[in-house]
Design a protein around this nucleic acid. Structure first.
Lengths: 135, 135
DNA sequence: ATACAGTCCACATAGTTGGTAGGCTATCGC
DNA sequence: GCGATAGCCTACCAACTATGTGGACTGTAT
């Protein structure tokens, strides 16, 4: 399951995608409209900024905005950044790989099945962007 | 990601599947062969028994064994039992559904996408059984 | 200069995960 | 019946993660 943090992130990103190229948006505005705890949202947006998804401006007229076109930001990227691995096992994860102790990957039925699941999932999340979240 | 508990459960179930219809297997044997902490495994097997996946016999010559044919036990069932929801959002979960606050499901891009992910995942996990884990 | 708005750090608190301890209960073989 | 065996049950615990909150600091526009 996606954490609440991830869900908040997607809500915020959707909001910002709808306002792409229309100037900075206040954290407080996003928090209010999307009903996200203000200080928590602050942390999330900062994290997205550090990952070069968002950019910000301080002072009057400041706020957050998307750094690139929403059609360029894959959903999979956001999930990995805020939520962590997409795969169901460390030993089949592409970005968070860890070797399986006590289980040789060459003959593990679970391993093979979870690769299938991973690929089926990525087939969707890698081909959808923030733009697709706006309906 | 699947919890360690889930991974242990699958290891144990694989072991028991290989020995289906060959009499009870000791917890301690499974723990040793699959390198699972004994007492932790005890809890897991008990949970699987309460869910009618396994059965057990006490006393000398006792142990755990599969209650039904491994080909009859879906992987999805085990995941839900030990790990919880398969879906990435409560509002798209079939077995653990919870309504989304502040997000009407009829027009939520994330919602629709996560239904796709859920279905793609279930397409695999609902059509594989314990038998498929034995290679 | 001042108000604004994001940045940073530290803390709080609840719940989950992974694991352990120890006694209880049912069953088998003699 | 009795002792050994082996699962059952209850409780506990440490570490970590998730979900926040508070407050001071920094940069910017006017």
């Amino acid at each position: 399951m996606l954490s609440k943090k991830s869900q908040y992130a997607f809500k915020a990103l959707t909001y910002l995608s709808e306002r792409f190229d229309k100037g900075p948006v206040l954290i407080s505005e996003i928090a209010k409209k999307k009903k996200i705890p203000l200080k928590f949202l602050e942390n999330i947006l900062l994290e997205l900024k550090r990952a070069d998804i968002l950019d910000s401006k301080k002072g009057k007229g400041g706020g957050y905005f998307l750094k690139v076109n929403p059609a360029k930001v894959k959903v999979a990227t956001i999930v990995r950044l805020i939520n962590g691995p997409i795969a169901m096992l460390p030993c089949v994860s592409l970005y968070f790989y860890e070797r399986c102790k006590n289980c040789n990957e060459t003959s593990c039925g679970l391993h093979d099945m979870m690769i299938e699941v991973r690929d089926a999932t990525l087939n969707i999340l890698d081909n959808r962007t923030l733009k697709d979240l706006v309906v």
